[in-house]
């Protein structure tokens, strides 16, 4: 008997389903598709919060506010958290807001260090003057509380072993008083710690970037205004990326490729400490930096493809099932006669 079309659909081999999935995810990568996405209010709130710090710093040049950035995520959620970190850090460096960074667990340190220096390099940020990597803040609650007065005694040195009292940036920023915002990018329940210690005790404002799965737990705190905005999953990262790209185009106002290759060309690079990053851009590195600028949106186009793919699969499966049932009902009826 000849196979009917619905039999083909219903008996489609799993490897073929997997192959289809592979294609819909990989093709946007190769084709460098970037999906524009609509911007939700919670992401905009976070963006506006950082903008407001910039505006404050413009007006009060002698008492600028800094941002404390916590890398609260590990290797298993880099796909979702990395793009958030990239776009938020780019926003901070673009607006030249002083930046302090720490990470609460040992496995997170490596992630934090590479990501931070990678972005700092793109904006010619100077270590110790524009940004500082404090290193390990464990146990994190002790560090959160002591930031209420002064966190320097707990650190002693930064991640690279520099004395915290010798770092220019840290002579000004060491407590919540001069911090405009705490940003926690995370896959854990760390934002609740921040809420409990930094917000409840010291009225510190907090913004959060989190994975899609844990975002559901944090929505109530965003709507109650305890978090100043939230980036939820890859989608939130894509939204932020979009907003920062608009800003970057406005500020830099030239092609990113030209900007990056000119960045270290005409200046004396011997002044820059090579411990943190190499002050030059190779052609490939520029390409990667440009790729990174749309990482979340590329991911979103893969996501979109995957979602549409699975919905079409389900649709066809149901159609096949429906017609098959109809047919078999008919045959049973004929037999009964």
């Amino acid at each position: 008997m000849k196979k009917k079309w619905y039999d083909v659909i219903l008996q489609i081999g799993k490897p073929y389903i997997y192959l289809g999935m592979f294609i819909v995810v990989v093709v946007p990568f190769l084709a460098k598709c970037e999906m524009q996405t609509y911007e939700t209010d919670i992401s905009k709130t976070m963006y506006e919060k950082i903008e407001s710090i910039y505006k404050y710093n413009q007006k009060n040049a002698d008492s600028e506010m800094a941002i404390l950035f916590a890398f609260d995520y590990g290797p298993s959620t880099t796909p979702e958290n990395d793009p958030m970190v990239y776009s938020v850090l780019r926003h901070i460096f673009l607006r030249e807001i002083p930046l302090l960074v720490w990470a609460p667990y040992v496995p997170y340190l490596d992630i934090a260090e590479t990501r931070l220096n990678r972005i700092a390099k793109e904006y010619k940020a100077i270590y110790g003057k524009d940004y500082v990597f404090l290193g390990l803040a464990y146990p994190v609650d002790a560090y959160m509380i002591s930031t209420g007065s002064d966190f320097r005694p707990l650190f002693n040195t930064d991640y690279y072993g520099n004395d915290v009292y010798s770092i220019p940036l840290l002579s000004k920023y060491y407590s919540y008083d001069n911090l405009g915002l705490v940003v926690s990018i995370t896959s854990t329940s760390m934002p609740l710690f921040w809420l409990q210690y930094a917000n409840a005790l010291f009225d510190q404002e907090i913004s959060v970037g989190t994975t899609a799965v844990s975002a559901a737990d944090f929505y109530p705190f965003v709507s109650s205004g305890q978090f100043q905005g939230m980036l939820a999953g890859l989608k939130g990262a894509a939204e932020y990326e979009q907003m920062v790209e608009r800003l970057e185009n406005k500020i830099i106002n030239k092609d990113i490729k030209v900007y990056l290759s000119d960045l270290y060309r005409d200046i004396d690079t011997s002044q820059i400490n090579k411990k943190y990053f190499e002050p030059k851009f190779g052609a490939e590195e520029i390409q990667v930096a440009i790729n990174r600028r749309s990482q979340a949106r590329r991911g979103m186009s893969s996501q979109f493809g995957a979602h549409i793919y699975v919905i079409i699969l389900i649709l066809f499966g149901n159609l096949g099932y429906y017609f098959k049932n109809k047919e078999s009902n008919k045959t049973t009826v004929t037999k009964a006669r």
């Binding site: 990989v26 990568f29 880099t78 994975t211 899609a212 990667v288 990482q295 996501q303 979602h307």
Partner: peptide, 18 residues
């Protein structure tokens, strides 16, 4: 959960292609 699982695969592809 579907979206989170796809993100994992995208992460691996990002490692290879970027």
């Amino acid at each position: 959960t579907f979206m989170a699982r796809i993100s994992l695969f995208i992460g691996r592809m990002n490692y290879i292609f970027s």
